[in-house]
Write a protein that binds this DNA or RNA. Structure first.
Lengths: 219, 219
DNA sequence: ACAAATATTTAGACAAATCTAAAATTATAT
DNA sequence: ATATAATTTTAGATTTGTCTAAATATTTGT
């Protein structure tokens, strides 16, 4: 199978294709993976040789079907392990990313399928991200980021785009958790900050934060 | 911390010190780890530089206290993961070694301690080997291998020296499992084979097999 | 359109871990 | 005791993934 480095590139390219365009640039990958552009170029050539990506010099890169499926396998493992850590080992949602980064590279189809069964086939990980099934099928629920909502609209917090410990600890501190109902009270045009309200309290968040909160059933 | 390769060497040296003498030879390590003697020499120098082993050219190697504790940490992780795989994910005892070889290198003290708690602090892994605690303390129960027993003596099967899938599958086929009471009926001097008896059946095993079965409470 | 800025690739080096082949050391056998 | 065998180490090469610095291509601003 693929090396850990290769798997990390696949996962990263998949995520960047989602967040940005279908063609992902060398520098974008480099900054995500915290490495140098030259290293990325080297790796892209290797991935292209293995038919995991389509790569044209200076033109960026995108995943082939094989690459996409391989990326989804890694993502499936990452999210199942995160679910295990939170549900079974009582980790907090802001502590699991680093560990799952390691666990996701353990090689055994049987292991991951048994883990899936043990967790009762969860559909979402602790950050609200969908978990691909054994065939790489993934349910993309239609969510809306707070930064796309209008004053007066409300919905349920079901996911976060940024699942770094920093951001998650911020949400903990502000008493925001998945499942909370959130209403947009006001948008300040000057700095684009959002005044929001939950069942228990009101607060102001920056547009950056608003952008990273995904709600469903927005009305 | 230490690399996967370093951890594998530490674990191997620890096991060989147990099974053989305190000084372990280059070739012995090479054959256990399935690599070349020259590679072992290189690594031993590296481990010696990190004060994990005492190494004198041509004289073999042994663990320092630091090396022993580091080895025990890896062994603790390996055995806890094996226990998890068997107890929680319903793996058979002959399927878990390879996967645990990967899982044992995941770095997080918190993870392994939480896993330990989740499993209710098991004392023995699925092969009857003792699991070191968080401080590297290990309970060495006094067991006897069948090859050291006399005709007429009996005991309870509590461990296997060889936990390769091949050997474990052999035991499955012969209907031998941990916890079984085993009695030595006869020893054939010609080929050193052992005639043994369990609650349910009798069988003949070679001296090699007898050597790998550990019994406790032998009388 | 074209100079300057930015992005990307190439070339060459490096560290970790391994290997082969040759040299050095230690063990063994007569 | 010494030649032969076995073991171990050294020297130099290889692979993977990374890096820096220089070269090349693309984009941007005027």
């Amino acid at each position: 199978m693929y090396s850990q480095a290769e798997e990390n590139y696949l996962k990263t390219i998949y995520a960047l294709e989602k967040d940005f365009s279908n063609e992902v640039s060398t520098n974008l990958i480099a900054s995500k993976i915290k490495t140098k552009a030259s290293s990325v170029t080297d790796m892209l050539k290797k991935l292209a040789n293995k038919d995991l990506v389509i790569y044209k010099k200076y033109q960026g890169v995108y995943l082939t079907e094989l690459g996409r499926l391989s990326a989804l396998k890694v993502i499936r493992k990452h999210r199942l392990w995160e679910s295990f850590l939170v549900q079974k080992l009582q980790f907090n949602w802001d502590e699991v990313h680093e560990i799952a980064e390691q666990l996701e590279h353990v090689k055994s189809e049987l292991l991951i399928n048994k883990l899936d069964a043990f967790l009762r086939y969860p559909k979402l990980d602790p950050h609200g991200d969908p978990i691909p099934d054994a065939h790489g099928r993934i349910i993309l629920s239609k969510t809306m980021s707070i930064s796309d909502m209008k004053i007066g609209s409300a919905g349920t917090l079901v996911g976060v785009k940024d699942s770094s410990a920093t951001f998650l600890k911020y949400l903990n501190k502000k008493n925001l958790a998945l499942g909370d109902k959130i209403k947009v009270i006001d948008i300040e045009p000057f700095d684009n900050s959002y005044h929001i309200e939950t069942k228990t309290h009101r607060l102001v968040i920056t547009s950056n934060v608003a952008d990273n909160l995904c709600l469903k059933n927005v009305k």
